[in-house]
């Protein structure tokens, strides 16, 4: 069982959350010409590496906010959590 520290609600069990994937993916700027490759990278291509991974979770059975979680994909250790609009240094 993972325990995720929701920045809005505090420490809660994994059962309250749903997963939203890689948080480092950036949507292409829409006010300029977007190439197929850029869309491809945004929609499909993922690094999905072993080790530290910044990812989105939604506190679906809690405050329903999207949050960012920094987690190790091999050990499942959770290092830090952030609000969705927080910049991650």
């Amino acid at each position: 069982m993972l325990y995720i520290n929701c920045p809005h609600c505090g420490m809660r069990s994994q059962n309250e959350f749903s997963y939203g994937g890689d948080a480092s993916v950036k949507r292409p700027e829409l006010n300029k010409e977007v190439s197929d490759q850029e869309w491809d990278d945004f929609v499909y291509n993922r690094k999905s590496l072993r080790g530290k991974h910044l990812e989105l979770w939604q506190h679906i059975s809690g405050c329903r906010q999207w949050i960012k979680v920094e987690r190790d994909t091999a050990t499942h250790e959770i290092f830090r959590t952030f609000k969705a609009d927080e910049e991650v240094a």
Binding site: Q14, S18, Y19, G21, D22, S48, E55, R71, T75
Partner: peptide, 13 residues
Amino acid sequence: DGYNSYAQRGNLP
């Protein structure tokens, strides 16, 4: 399990 993982072991939920 629903989230990216290299753990080769599962989670109970």
